[in-house]
Design a protein around this nucleic acid. Structure first.
Lengths: 282, 282
DNA sequence: CCTAGTTACGTACGTCGTACGTAGTGCGGT
DNA sequence: ACCGCACTACGTACGACGTACGTAACTAGG
C-alpha cells in the first residue's frame, strides 16, 4: 500500500457536495448501495474501486472524488446497512429486553450482509447511522443507573458478542458451501487429519467430542442465556469474587505487553460502532 | 486473486518433510517465527510472501514449497502463538476459575500479538497447538456436566468475548499512536465533526456522553463480571425468561435471511480455534 | 546407479490501491 | 456579464501484491 498523502478526516467530516465545481453525478448513498450490492453478491473482497466504479457507471478514478480511500468506501457501506436498524419503536422501559431486541436486530443485519462481521471494529468516529443506532440504544438504557461511558462499553460488549456469535454461525454455514473441492473431499481430508491426531491418544476429550452423537446443541439458547447474563451483570454489582478465585482475579500479570492494562480513558470514543480499516499495527 | 489449482487440505494434513528430494532448509516453526516477528513489528499487512521469504533468507517462490497459500502462513503463525499458552498447570477443579485464567492468558496473548484478534475466526480444522489448547480447556471443564458440544460452544463464546474485549482495548491504544497526521489533528477533526452532529440536538445522550468527565471506567472489572456471568450461565440452566420479555425472546423474527436460524448441527467443528482466511462470501 | 519426485527460484501475469496530469465544467465574486 | 478557480471526470502509470509456471539442482527409493 503506497503512502497516504494527507487528509486525516473521516469521510463524514467532508461535505458531500462542494460548492464550486459541477454537481456530483452520484450521491454517497448511491455509492454505498453499489458497494453493499457487490459485497452481498460476491463477497467483500469483490468490492474493489474498479468494480464499484464500473457498476456505478464511471471511471475508476472518478470514484476517488467521492471516496478518498477504499477504507472510506467500507465506512459508507457500513453506515448504509446500519440504516436498516429499526429504531422507530420507543424503548419499552425494560432495558434488558430492548438491548436484547437490538442484539437480535444486529444478528439479522449480519445475516443479510455477511461481510459485516468482518469489518466490525471499534472505531473512533461514528457514522451518521452509527450515531443514530447508539443514540437509540442509549435511550434504551435510560433506566440503567450508570455512567454513559459504562453504557457505551456495555453496548460494545453486546455488539461484540453478537459479532462473535454470528461469525460462528456464518462460518458453519459457509463451510457447507463454496468449497472448490466439494464438501465431502474437504471434510474427508480434515476429518482424516483430526482423526489421526486424536488417534494418538493425546486428545482424549477431543476424541470424545468427535464421537459424541451431537444432537442439535441449542446454540441460540446458549447465546440467549449468555447475553442475558452479561446484561444482568451490568445491573447489580454483586458478587465479583464469587467463592473461588482464579490465578489472578481482576487483572493477573500483564507485564511484557505494550499498552497492557493501561488507560481506559476517553470513554466516549472507541467504544463501538461499525467501521472498517482496522489498524494493522505499528 | 487468481484461481486456486487444487489441494484442498489444510496445511497440517501434509507432512512437513517429504521423503524424496533434498532436505528442506527451513522448518515450519522457522517460517512461523518469521511471520510472527514481522507481524509483531510491522503489522499483519506487512506479512507478505516476499517479505517473509526475504527475512527467511530464500527466494519468494521457495516459500511456496513450505506454504502452499498465504492463508496457510497465517495458520502457521496462529498456531505458533497458540503455543505460548501455558497448559502445564493441572486444572484446579474449579472450572470457572480455570476458564477465567485461560481467558486472561488469551488476553495477554493478544496483547503480545496484536494482529491475533484480526484473524480470530472459527474454523473447521484445528492446528496442533489449537488442539492442545482445546484439550486442556476441555480438561478444565471436566467438572461441568454438559455435552462436549456445549463445552466447545462455551469455550468459543469465552474466546469470542476476549477477542471483542481486546479489540476494544487495542483500538483505543492504537488510536493514540500511529496516526500519520499527528494525534491532535485527527482528534480535532473527528471531535469537530462529532460536536457538529451532536450540536444539532438530535443526539442528546451522545452529547451527554461526550460531556461526561469520563473518570476511568472500570473496563477490566466490567469485563471480568461479564465473563463470570457467562460462565455461570452455563452452569445452572435456570431463568431463561427472567421476568420481562423482549419483543421476541429466544429467537425473534428471522425471516429474510439466508441461513437464518437453521442448523446448529455438527457441534464438534466450527466452534472455535484460531485461524485466518475468513471466507469473504459467495 | 538411475530416475522420479522435491527443493530452489527467476520470470511473468493479472490484480489491486492510488498518485498524477489533463481536460472540461459551472459557481462565486467582481 | 464574465472571469477564474475549485471542482469533476478519467486515462495512464507505478509499485505493491499473490502466485502460476518453467527450469536447474539434488537426493532418496527402486
Amino acid at each position: 500500500m503506497p503512502a497516504r498523502s494527507a487528509e486525516p478526516a473521516v469521510i463524514w467530516s467532508r461535505p458531500e457536495r462542494a460548492g464550486r465545481g459541477p454537481r456530483p453525478a452520484y450521491s454517497r448513498s448511491d455509492i454505498a448501495a453499489v458497494g453493499v450490492r457487490v459485497a452481498d453478491a460476491d463477497g467483500l473482497d469483490a468490492v474493489t474501486m474498479r468494480r464499484v466504479a464500473a457498476e456505478l457507471g464511471c471511471g475508476t478514478m472518478s470514484l476517488y472524488n467521492y471516496v478518498p480511500r477504499k477504507e472510506d468506501l467500507h465506512e459508507l457501506m457500513a453506515d448504509a446497512v446500519m440504516g436498516e436498524y429499526d429504531t422507530s419503536q420507543p424503548p419499552s422501559g425494560d432495558w434488558r429486553a430492548d438491548l436484547l431486541a437490538m442484539a437480535y436486530q444486529a444478528r439479522q443485519l449480519m445475516h443479510r450482509h455477511t461481510w459485516l462481521p468482518r469489518m466490525m471494529s471499534p472505531v473512533y468516529g461514528f457514522s451518521p447511522n452509527g450515531l443514530r443506532f447508539i443514540e437509540y440504544t442509549l435511550s434504551c438504557l435510560d433506566g440503567l443507573d450508570a455512567r454513559y461511558g459504562a453504557k457505551l462499553e456495555l453496548i460494545a460488549m453486546v455488539n461484540g458478542m453478537v459479532t462473535t456469535y454470528v461469525s460462528n454461525e456464518l462460518a458453519a454455514a459457509e463451510r457447507t458451501r463454496s468449497l472448490p473441492w466439494s464438501e465431502e473431499r474437504e471434510h474427508e481430508v480434515r476429518a482424516a487429519y483430526l482423526a489421526r491426531q486424536v488417534a494418538g491418544g493425546a486428545y482424549p476429550r477431543m476424541a470424545a467430542a468427535m464421537a459424541e452423537d451431537a444432537g442439535p446443541i441449542d446454540l441460540d439458547g446458549a447465546f440467549d442465556r449468555a447475553l442475558r447474563r452479561v446484561l444482568d451483570a451490568f445491573n447489580d454489582p454483586t458478587d465479583s469474587a464469587d467463592s473461588t478465585d482464579p490465578a489472578g482475579s481482576t487483572d493477573p500479570a500483564g507485564s511484557t505487553d505494550p499498552a497492557d492494562s493501561t488507560a481506559p480513558t476517553d470513554s466516549t470514543g472507541g467504544s463501538l460502532g461499525v467501521s472498517s480499516g482496522g489498524g494493522s499495527g505499528t
